[in-house]
Simulated scan of single mutants.
Amino acid sequence: MKIITWNCNGAFRKKFESLTDKNADIHIIQECENPAETKDLNYKNWALNYLWIGDSKNKGIGIFAKENIELKLLNWSDIYKDHKVKHFLPCKVNNDFNLIAVWTHKNNSPNFGYIGQFWKYLQINKSRMSNSIIIGDFNSNSIWDQWDRWWNHSDVVKELKEIGIESIYHNREKEENGKETKPTFYLHRNLSKPYHIDYCFASKNHLEKTSNFVIENFENWKHLSDHTPIIITFK
């Protein structure tokens, strides 16, 4: 199975065809339109098997799969102490494993933006996360850890590891968090401002089945987005 995650930077209806030659089984796309409300027939016909959530019809997160793959939406909570966290889209794939698509937000929180949102989601649903792939745009890296917080990126990585879930990139590349040599995002598409903020975390059984992990060359994608696609292949 081949999975792609990509923050398309909006207007995915005009960009989805750039991914077709990758022949992925599942696409996790951040900042994409809701196929149910688009007027673009090509996009609608491409998105025949999908799940989607978002704040507006023009910008959300979607899971798009080939027609022979079953996506079953999971009824996991996204409410932490009366506050809704976003955006997290969990599903069961082929009744086999959990796939949690991620696009973290500031969510108007002065303290718990981005990785803080995922930290809260993790506290709510940690007991459900065995046999899972957690993938997407986390808008986060250990370089932004703050000394007086317990929901830093490094803390989240540690908590995931305690339940048997690790970053595939770091597992394969043997690099420390915060010292990644391969960026996934360039601020304002500026090559002098590279960051690693997109991840694929996976349970041990999926880590062991990973046969390939590719961060695409940004030069080939900068005309479309400030993020580059990540392609993961599992045996």
Rank of each mutant, 00 (worst) to 15 (best):
G136A: 08
T233W: 01
I215Q: 07
Y121L: 09
K72S: 15
D145M: 11
K179P: 00
N107Y: 08
I165V: 12
W221Y: 13
F97G: 06
L224E: 08
D78C: 13
L99I: 08
K204S: 12
Y114L: 08
R149S: 13
I79V: 15
K158D: 11
W103G: 04
S77M: 12
N131C: 05
E67W: 01
I4T: 10
E37W: 10
N98R: 14
E208H: 02
K209R: 14
N217V: 04
E31T: 04
N9D: 07
T20G: 00
F201A: 06
G178M: 10
N42A: 11
K92D: 13
E159P: 00
F97R: 06
M129P: 01
I134T: 09
R172Y: 06
I163S: 11
N152R: 14
K182L: 08
K222A: 00
F213M: 02
N107P: 01
C200N: 03
S18C: 05
F213L: 08
Y43M: 05
Y43I: 04
H206P: 00
N58Q: 11
T233P: 00
Y50F: 15
D145E: 14
Y186P: 00
D145R: 12
N45Q: 11
L99M: 12
E70P: 01
V102I: 15
L73D: 12
I143F: 09
P229F: 12
N205W: 01
G136P: 02
N23F: 02
N108Q: 14
L73C: 10
L191E: 09
W103S: 10
S140F: 03
E70S: 15
I29S: 03
D198R: 04
T233A: 09
P183S: 07
Y80Q: 07
Y121E: 10
L51P: 01
I230F: 05
L160P: 00
I165D: 07
D82H: 13
L122C: 07
Q146V: 13
A202N: 06
K44T: 03
L187C: 03
L224C: 01
S140L: 04
E180A: 06
K22P: 00
E219D: 10
Y121F: 15
N125S: 13
Y169R: 03
I163Q: 11
N95P: 01
H227K: 07
T184K: 07
W52V: 09
K158I: 04
V156K: 02
K39E: 13
F201Y: 15
L207N: 08
L74N: 12
K44Q: 14
H170V: 03
K84F: 11
I231H: 02
E173Q: 10
F201L: 05
W6S: 02
N108P: 00
I134H: 07
H87P: 00
A202K: 05
I231F: 03
I197P: 00
N217Y: 03
D148C: 06
A65N: 10
K81C: 08
G10P: 01
E159C: 03
W46G: 01
I115Y: 07
W144N: 13
T228P: 00
F138Q: 05
D145F: 11
R149F: 13
S225L: 02
F97W: 12
S211D: 04
A24G: 03
W221H: 06
K235L: 03
K235T: 04
N68I: 05
S225P: 01
S140H: 06
I69R: 12
Y169C: 02
K120R: 15
R13H: 12
K39L: 10
K22D: 05
T184H: 04
Y199F: 14
